[in-house]
């Protein structure tokens, strides 16, 4: 078998990488904000029978329970029928944000609930309001706990962002996978192009993994070791 790699692909692939990274980081950032709000509502929103809790739960169940592809096409093709025009980038960003927010909400809920109840009690006993206790005591601890699951979600989203290639038609709106498909379709070098693209994704995942490990170590609470280590 004769593999041919053409350096002329690289600038376009590089553009694709840029768009993939942008899409992933934006959706993860916005998703974290929305996810944190939803997670807080699930924990502190007044219990099972409050309307807020119900709205948050319905949202989470809907966006976790339907495929991201369906959500993307629903937004990209559905919104224009309602008179709202969205480009492929915006549609992709919106779908990915709404989707990851639902998953992140559950990570936030889990992390918040893992903080010992005595922490809230001690904060309230000092005279802090509930919001102050959440902001100064609960969230700083929950955010540390959320890093490992959040890293997973980041890696998932980085790879799943390839579905925006479904909607991008013009080269400048194509993500890494979209670029690859269009290059391959033109010169029939499918195998070579997809190997290259796989390596690009792998490199991005490794960089993000190392970066988040570094963050995790940086914010580790001194004295609290890794559970089970050395046993």
């Amino acid at each position: 078998m004769n593999l041919v790699f053409d350096p002329a692909w690289l600038p376009r692939l590089g553009q694709g990488v840029l768009l993939t990274v942008q899409l992933t980081l934006y959706c993860m950032g916005l998703g974290a904000v929305l996810g944190a709000v939803l997670g807080l509502v699930r924990v502190y929103g007044g219990g099972r029978w409050s309307p807020l809790y119900w709205v948050a739960s319905a949202y989470i169940h809907f966006f976790r329970g339907t495929p991201l592809l369906v959500q993307l096409l629903g937004i990209y093709l559905g919104l224009p029928t309602a008179g709202i025009l969205v480009g492929p980038f915006l549609a992709g960003l919106l779908a990915m944000t709404l989707n990851t927010a639902a998953y992140q909400a559950e990570y936030f809920r889990g992390a918040i609930q893992s903080v010992k109840s005595g922490q809230m009690m001690a904060a309230r006993a000092l005279g802090m309001s509930r919001a102050q206790a959440i902001g100064h005591v609960i969230m700083p601890q929950a955010l540390r706990l959320i890093i490992p699951p959040w890293s997973n979600e980041l890696i998932y989203m980085l790879k799943y962002s390839s579905i925006v290639s479904m909607t991008a038609l013009r080269p400048e709106t194509m993500d890494l996978f979209g670029v690859a498909r269009s290059i391959a379709a033109r010169n029939f070098r499918y195998f070579e192009v997809y190997i290259l693209v796989a390596l690009f994704y792998l490199a991005m995942v490794l960089i993000l993994t190392v970066a988040l490990r570094w963050v995790e170590r940086r914010v580790r609470i001194p004295g609290l070791g890794t559970p089970g280590r050395g046993i």
Binding site: K116, G118, A122, A125, V137, L224
Partner: peptide, 12 residues
């Protein structure tokens, strides 16, 4: 002031 049995110092 309130002093708890299991201290409840803010761990972070």
């Amino acid at each position: 002031g309130f002093v708890f049995q299991d201290f409840n110092l803010f761990t972070h």
